[in-house]
Write a protein that binds this DNA or RNA. Structure first.
Lengths: 338, 338
DNA sequence: GTGAAAGCGCTAACAT
DNA sequence: ATGTTAGCGCTTTCAC
């Protein structure tokens, strides 16, 4: 299979569109039409060109394509490389973008690499929109950015002028409480997120859904936080004295802390205590954890974000920016003791 | 700060090098020289051009630059988005690449997106080398790829014709055993990785370092695996009957399974049992785990990989492809009981 | 249906 | 030290 040197081709170089055109006896323009599947080429020609392209091992040069075409069909993503959930969304964005006819350009944010830099890279590469997962830039910076290109933020609260795709936190908490109530729980406590951003909203949703379930008098909120240690600390107070039969935690890491504390205390989960997390992270799915958790639906968020970007690029108004989370029931919830 | 319309500039468009050149009264070529810091421009001119560029908000268009220059100074990375350790390496690669004067292009591999596709994207974008983190492609595919561009694999065993940057597994295991032996442990068991790739090498290293430490008669190997469940299963056997005082696990997830089992059994770690993991993953660093683990030194691997790529691009032979891992001592190891 | 010509924004020889 | 001249590989009118 020696084909490093096609007839007329220059040695050692990647074949170009011109090579394909020459080899199949058409003009570059026509070859271009065929390669990108545009209309304006006869069936016979199309087949012939495609066949030579294949034989030559031709692949379009994305740099040249991007440079020339006004529509780059390129979607830029900023994400934090150390956030597992960002990874899930990124993966789903690839699928959604492909379906919508877009290419994806990734730009990681990290300790070494501020978000501003990550975004600049995307802009310089000619993306038509920037999807920013949990953007850390301030509203002013985002607004400035949004003047250059449509910006869609994921997982963050709305900022004026920026489309925000996120999931309905209140609905997620409600689903958790309703699930527990349906199992027969009445003593359902909430370990909140402390100072974390979404904490207040989730706390309010907990109170409201407890009342909706007719067990408003059982409301019990403990100060928690976003990490395992917070869950462990809260569990100390929670498991001493009158113990609830179920806990809704601020997030999975907090829930994991509660689980750890419960296990060490000798409590059986879910027989003695049911625990629900939030995020449906990798942690929740670990074989030995199998935590019931509220899933933010990475695929749904990704699709909505891509659809939103596509709409903005077409200068249309997007919609469907708020996704409904779903409760994923695993092994940490069951009927209450007795 | 209205500067959407600079004099002579076209409305709503990003300023180009031509705009900068015109506005500062020099030729495009000279402006180009200044912008990329090449030599051949007077100090005064340089300042003036730079100043107008700043005023205009000019940023070079990377597509055009990439297209034109033979040296794209672009490094392509394939990584798996769901692997936390890959993320760490990616972050370090950014830093290393910048120091070496390279840009980084990320291409994610996932369930939706096979590695072959991820690599093609990189090639089409004109990368000068491909760094593949834990490549999943077969030797034949890798070899074919390596004929087009230098390929450096990270974290994987060497393949003929491909440079492999990895860490010295045997040394890592040895460090773990020596650490435990130094603490006074003699009964050090090993829960291996089952069928996992690196399992055999680590198992052999365990045996050898046990003998080196003069406790060859205490060698005890249990069948494990790469996941929590494997650790839990192995722990069942391990903790019944004559219990070792310490365990070296195949990796962090396996170690976590052992920890869980120990906690549930009521054992105190490290008072009753010391546990060492491998990978120094996020899991190991969780507040409530604080697992002593062998760190693969993401930064070192990243630097070595970038240096290797740079060498290959210059048609030189790389070296320093095998990194020494380091033991990170946390809270799961201590002196043996009694 | 097909081809000729004109660039996209930039860099790199080659003049001056 | 500065400017001129060609393109990189591709897409996109616009003729035929």
């Amino acid at each position: 299979m020696e084909r490093d040197q096609q007839p007329g081709g220059r040695p050692g170089r990647r074949p170009t569109l011109a090579d394909v055109a020459a080899a199949s006896g058409v003009s570059r323009a026509l070859a271009s039409i065929v390669m990108r599947g545009a209309e304006g080429a006869g069936e016979a020609t199309r087949e012939r060109v495609l066949e030579t392209a294949r034989q030559l091992g031709y692949r379009p040069d994305s740099r040249a394509r991007l440079l020339r075409s006004s529509r780059t069909r390129l979607l830029g993503i900023t994400f934090t490389v150390s956030e597992p959930f960002h990874g899930e969304i990124v993966e789903s964005i690839y699928a959604a973008a492909e379906a919508a006819g877009f290419e994806v350009l990734l730009s990681a944010v990290g300790a070494q690499r501020p978000e501003a830099r990550a975004v600049e890279t995307l802009l310089d590469a000619g993306v038509e929109a920037a999807l920013m997962i949990s953007p850390s830039s301030g509203p002013a910076d985002l607004a400035a950015l949004a003047r250059q290109v449509p910006v869609i933020s994921l997982l963050s609260a709305a900022v004026p002028g920026i489309d925000a795709v996120r999931s309905d936190d209140a609905a997620g908490i409600r689903a958790a409480v309703q699930h527990l109530a349906a199992l027969g729980h009445r003593d359902i406590a909430h370990v909140d997120g402390g100072d974390a951003v979404a904490s207040a909203e989730r706390r309010a949703a907990y109170e409201e859904s407890m009342r909706e379930a007719g067990i408003g008098e059982c409301i019990r909120i403990l100060h928690g936080g976003a990490h395992e240690a917070d869950g462990i600390a809260a569990a100390g107070e929670l498991l001493a004295g009158r113990r609830p039969t179920a806990v809704v935690a601020f997030n999975d890491r907090c829930a994991l802390g509660i689980l750890e504390a419960a296990w060490r205390t000798g409590l059986r989960v879910p027989d003695d205590l049911s625990v629900v997390g939030y995020d449906d992270s990798q942690l929740a799915r670990l074989d030995h954890v199998r935590l019931t958790s509220v899933s933010q639906d990475a695929a749904g968020l990704a699709e909505a974000a891509v659809a939103c970007a596509a709409a903005r690029i077409r200068s249309e108004e997007p919609d469907g920016l708020v996704l409904q989370p779903a409760l994923v029931v695993r092994s940490t919830t069951g009927t209450p003791p007795d």
